[in-house]
């Protein structure tokens, strides 16, 4: 099974240089059927990576560019009148796909962002008085740009909570950037081929579920989530005032899934605390609501998570 993962990685690497962390995050999302929010400044191959993954997987892929004048019906679909048959017909929107790329999701107003809530949680869409199930796998991969303030609408907490991972994309290393520049200059990118299909993906997802988690490790994960709500229990009184709301139970659910996928990607059959530490920031950074004191003092949520992980005893 790990060979398939390696093959997917190799295929993506034909067009994307570096960014292993983002690719791992996307694969975890795929293996756990969790939605992914990718945040990074423009030009870091966020959209390219998602498109490359979709092509490699051979799944149905749709892309929606979120704009301020976008409407919910532009994504979900709508009931339209058919004059020939004198009937109203359902016209399905781009959400009826396997992989939906919501590009620059924070450029659309809240009503459009909220249109995704039902689809992301219940994997169904209600149009008029009829509900339509979405095909499996269904994955929303959204990108957003953190540096602009004008004309953007921050995602509401309920929407953020539905994203399993929020991946922060950083700059490539100088060697990687050199390779990118050479590749683009010589137009030597190779074509990507679909190497898996929905059935194989289903098998991979089933294989992930077999990864073992020891009870101690499970309790460790619950303790980590609990520490975001009551940090003083772990001797972290100093950070309590910085956290307004800790992680929700949905984080625990997603963590149980994601760490299995992380261990699976590393070719392991069991989960270790290091797998948890590797992915905990992506799982929690968008789900911990910081207090105004933290904002005033410029406290970063990643730093708080690091403090929590180092304070909770490792099994």
């Amino acid at each position: 099974m790990i060979k398939i993962i390696d093959a997917i990685r190799t295929e993506i690497a034909k067009v994307v240089v570096g960014q292993e962390k983002m690719i791992d995050g996307l694969l975890i999302g795929l293996l756990c059927e969790g939605h992914i929010l990718i945040e990074g400044i423009p030009g870091l191959a966020k959209t390219t990576t998602v498109k490359a993954l979709a092509q490699t997987l051979g799944l149905d892929f749709k892309r929606v560019q979120f704009t301020p004048d976008l409407l919910p019906s532009d994504i979900l679909g709508a009931e339209v009148y058919d004059p020939q048959n004198n009937l109203f017909k359902i016209k399905k929107g781009p959400i009826f796909t396997n992989l939906l790329l919501a590009d620059e999701i924070n450029r659309a107003p809240a009503k459009v962002q909220s249109a995704l809530l039902e689809a992301m949680q219940e994997r169904q869409v209600t149009l008029s008085d009829e509900s339509f199930g979405l095909s499996s796998p269904f994955l929303v991969m959204a990108t957003q740009n953190p540096i602009e303030n004008e004309g953007v609408y921050p995602l509401p907490e309920a929407q953020l909570d539905r994203f399993m991972l929020k991946i922060k994309v950083g700059y490539n290393t100088p060697d990687e950037e050199l390779l990118i520049a050479r590749r683009i200059a010589s137009k030597s990118s190779e074509a990507i081929h679909a190497i898996v299909n929905a059935q194989v993906i289903g098998e991979l997802q089933e294989a992930v579920k077999t990864v073992h988690i020891d009870e101690e490790v499970e309790r460790y994960m619950i303790a980590l989530v609990g520490a975001t709500r009551e940090p003083e229990r772990f001797g972290l009184e100093s950070i309590k005032r910085y956290i307004q709301f800790g992680a929700s139970p949905r984080v625990s659910i997603d963590m149980f899934k994601a760490v299995r996928a992380m261990a699976f990607l590393r070719g392991k059959e069991f989960v270790t605390p290091s797998d948890i530490a590797s992915i905990i920031k992506d799982l929690m950074r968008h789900r911990i609501v910081l207090s105004y004191e933290a904002e005033a003092e410029g406290i970063d949520v990643d730093t708080l998570i690091e403090q929590i992980v180092t304070a909770v005893p490792v099994p």
């Binding site: 290091s274 530490a277 992980v309 180092t310």
Partner: peptide, 9 residues
Amino acid sequence: KELSILLSL
């Protein structure tokens, strides 16, 4: 263990 966690973070 601590080192493993720090590196993973």
